[in-house]
Write a protein that binds this DNA or RNA. Structure first.
Length: 148
DNA sequence: GACACATTTTGGA
DNA sequence: TCCAAAATGTGTC
């Protein structure tokens, strides 16, 4: 198991990973520097649209949470889906989706920032909604630049 | 074992 | 049209 951290705006992204499997991703104010997979630095720089071939430990296994995480990871880069949409895809209920996102062990890999409320508002995010806003903005501007 | 959650939907006033 | 309550699965205390 290797650990590393890189910067994203005012925040540090701490990554616990093992070869191609990411076990945990956390947002922290401060973190010891260390190597992270190139996919992370590329994505956070707006130069990558995904984390392949990296995978998340949360995507494996079975059970409702794994279903939800897989459904969320299917959301295309730069797009968003509501909690209700995810709930339908995972054959569960929106309340459970919210809980799964709150307990998400690997944000970014499982793009929980692309999950928003049904009325178009952002919903919530831990530890700071600002991160969610920044990520969506990053993807949107990066996507637009890619098209043009 | 009870309770807290990053929601959504429906029914009644 | 707006407000209140129910549905529901998992992790923590």
């Amino acid at each position: 198991m290797r650990q590393g951290a890189c910067s994203f705006g005012l925040w540090k992204v701490a990554v616990d990973y093992d070869d191609m499997v990411v076990h945990r991703v956390r947002f922290m104010r401060t973190a010891p520097d260390g190597p992270v997979p190139i996919e992370f630095t590329r994505f956070l720089a707006g130069k990558g649209t995904g984390f392949a071939p990296l995978t998340s430990a949360a995507l494996g296994g079975d059970g409702t949470y794994a279903e939800i995480y897989r459904a969320v990871s299917r959301i295309p880069y730069g797009e968003t889906q509501s909690y209700g949409e995810i709930a339908k895809a995972a054959e569960t209920h929106p309340r459970v989706v919210g809980n799964a996102m709150a307990r998400n062990p690997t944000p970014l890999i499982v793009p929980c920032h692309r999950v928003i409320s049904s009325d178009g508002s952002l919903g919530g995010f831990s530890p700071d909604l600002e991160i969610k806003k920044s990520l969506l903005q990053l993807e949107k501007s990066s996507l637009r630049r890619h098209i043009s």
